[in-house]
Structures are given as C-alpha cells and as structure tokens.
C-alpha cells in the first residue's frame, strides 16, 4: 500500500493561529477578501465601534501566513505559524 504523502497529512494539522483584536476592527474586509485559504468571515456581532469584526470560519485552514496582519490597516488581526504541532482545537484567539 502506498504511503499517504504531503497534503493529506498536512491538511489535518493546525498550522496557524489567528489573533483578532475585535475592538480595533473597522470592518474594511481586507483580511477576509485576501486570506489565501479563505478561512475568515464577518461575524454577526458588533464591536464597540459598531463594526462587524472578522471571525475564523474554518479553524483548521489557517496556515499562519500573516497576510491578514500585513493587510489590516487597523493593526487588529495577525496570524502566527505553529511548527510541529498536531491538530488541536480551533486555532483562534481573541486578543484583548
């Protein structure tokens, strides 16, 4: 039997954590639009400024590339890569 290679095994691992500071968000949607694996979406809740901050729709999909952090004009979101970590619970952290 052939061994499972690359992508199938990798897909099971959580590769990145997204940190979202909800109250800084101004709802421009850059992070949601330009996220390469498209794991973010607008949440239904409002933040203190009256905008809908993003939330993680697909917990296992984040690769930790930090492109959201590069795009966010309000410094409200960023992602970090996790190295050598097996799948955990949803990789999502709300920064204060």
């Amino acid at each position: 039997m052939t061994k499972l290679t690359g992508t199938a095994e990798k897909a099971k691992k959580v590769r990145g954590i997204v940190h979202i500071n909800k109250n800084r968000c101004k709802g421009c949607g850059f992070c949601i639009e330009f996220c390469p694996p498209s794991v973010l979406e607008f949440s239904d809740e409002f933040n203190a400024q009256g905008y809908h901050p993003p939330r993680l729709a697909d917990g296992d999909g984040c690769t930790g590339c930090d492109l959201c952090g590069m795009y966010c004009p309000d410094f409200a979101i960023y992602a970090v890569m996790i190295k050598n970590r097996q799948q955990g619970s949803a990789a999502h952290h709300d920064a204060v």
Binding site: N21, D66, F75, V80, G88, A91, D94, A95
Partner: peptide, 24 residues
C-alpha cells in the same frame, strides 16, 4: 476572553513599532 490554543501569546508584530496608546 477565551484562549483556545495553548501557545504563547505573541504580540502583533507591528505593535513593536507603533504607539499603541494612540490606536485607534
């Protein structure tokens, strides 16, 4: 606030270069 992953909370890389007290 819930922390669902046991990882050291790293700060946003931009914050080392920004006067955060003036944000938003």
């Amino acid at each position: 606030m819930s922390l669902t992953v046991e990882a050291p909370v790293q700060a946003n890389p931009v914050e080392a270069f920004v006067r955060t007290e003036r944000i938003p």
